[in-house]
Design a protein around this nucleic acid. Structure first.
Lengths: 242, 242
DNA sequence: CGAGCCCTTGAAACTCGTCAATGATCGTGG
DNA sequence: CCACGATCATTGACGAGTTTCAAGGGCTCG
């Protein structure tokens, strides 16, 4: 199977078992897609939301901009990731969304979301998936609030590894990550300079290298320990949770 | 009306119009309550969730504890606040919850939640309310990540004011807030000492005083400006959104 | 081949944390 | 009614982690 919806179905299938009809429905509602280039705005703070986005390929992020230019990235969206289906109730979004790497995006209408909600397996998967997304936000708050620069970066890389693995985008302990150090800084609430120094420290300790958008985790166990990473928040709602 | 569910109904009623029957249903499912004292655990990270909590009186918080004792408070729950109804799908929670001020708590069963979901007005209100809770989390991430200690504290106090006002727990620009400076520190990712210094700065500038659990905002406009607070994230989904 | 973006590095400054000690407040029991 | 202990607020001195500023170097793409 290599439909455009492949990653999305794979992502959701971790939370629920799908019948062939469920899968056809998912492919159906995501049949119309939009290709986006880097820096395309997918949403702007204060505007009506209307559609629920599904990232089929590429990468995007939610972020908030302060008036003076400071920026906090709130979430990454990898292939297979989607917005909260309840968004269709929302008058306006409070965050912006932009494309970080050329993307293919499905934009679900309220009708499509309602159609999905009528399939119990899909509705259940989306609910559990949305709960995981909230768990990620909570972990990011802990990360930014109470971990050192070193732990933050290590923790984020562990999380990304687990999330990309779930949709088949890792090879061993390596994966592509099209982020600049400045973007990592806006994510982790660190200056780009300090991200750089911390990245070099991780490299020096032979835990991780991150060069040319290519991340290699050389010692996963040690990185996990050093960062205090526990993947429970990412998979405790899955079908076969540990 | 002074039923135990008063604040809860008032909180949700901002997002949807309720019929008398809707109100009876809300009172009904929250009829059985539990009284909790300070430091009671309402949930523990890693345990099954089972119930969706509604805080009818008092105050509670969600938090995460790191192995070495560092703590991040993830959310405050004031009277009228509740957990995400989708929690009933969740195998285990990833956070802990504890009581900050003597509380009366309703613990909704999955059956109760499902009953509520069958009332369209209530389901819609809960969905919008849950979206607001997520917006609060995003704003907290911005707060902890990219605002100075001074802005963080000011922003948080503005937010709390708006939230308490929504359930009728403010008088003018004053309200009760049973938090220690250490708890504020765990919320804002600051040391208790620095919270103290920042609080004195706010006092010195005649913006806010916070003494004996009593907050008075002396100059709301100035505080809002100094903290960069925009209440849109708290009310843009309400019935009569600005 | 140049322009632009990104990474790298050093030095200085600053915000905030830690440590430590003193006070204030409050509930409790003698 | 007062002594006591506990919790919380306050203050000062010092130190650490991180930011900012600035400059140089490398890569990529037109």
């Amino acid at each position: 199977m290599s439909s455009a919806a492949y990653r999305w179905i794979r992502r959701l299938a971790r939370f629920s078992s799908f019948t062939p009809e469920d899968q056809r429905t998912l492919e159906d509602v995501s049949a119309v897609t939009r290709r986006c280039i880097v820096n395309d705005d997918l949403a702007k703070a204060g505007e009506p939301s209307e559609r629920v986005l599904v990232i089929l390929e590429g990468m995007a992020c939610r972020h908030k901009l302060l008036p003076d230019g400071r920026r906090q990235i709130l979430a990454y969206l990898f292939p297979g990731d989607m917005g909260d289906p309840r968004q269709i109730m929302q008058a306006r979004v409070d965050y912006s969304m932009c494309v970080l790497w050329p993307a293919e995006v499905a934009m679900l209408t309220a009708a499509s979301v309602q159609r999905l909600e009528r399939h119990p397996n899909i509705a259940s998967a989306m609910a559990r998936y949305a709960l995981m997304q909230q768990a990620i936000m909570r972990e990011w708050l802990v990360n930014v609030g109470h971990r050192t620069a070193f732990e933050r970066l290590g923790h984020l890389l562990c999380e990304i590894h687990v999330r990309l693995e779930a949709v088949g985008l890792t090879r061993e302990h390596a994966f592509e990550l099209p982020l600049t150090q400045a973007e990592l800084g806006d994510t982790l609430a660190l200056s780009a300079v300090h991200v750089n120094r911390t990245l070099m420290e991780l490299r020096r300790l032979k835990l991780v290298t991150f060069q040319n958008r290519h991340v290699v985790i050389h010692d996963y166990a040690a990185l996990q320990a050093a960062a205090g990473f526990d993947p429970a928040y990412l998979n405790s709602n899955e079908k076969h949770a540990p």
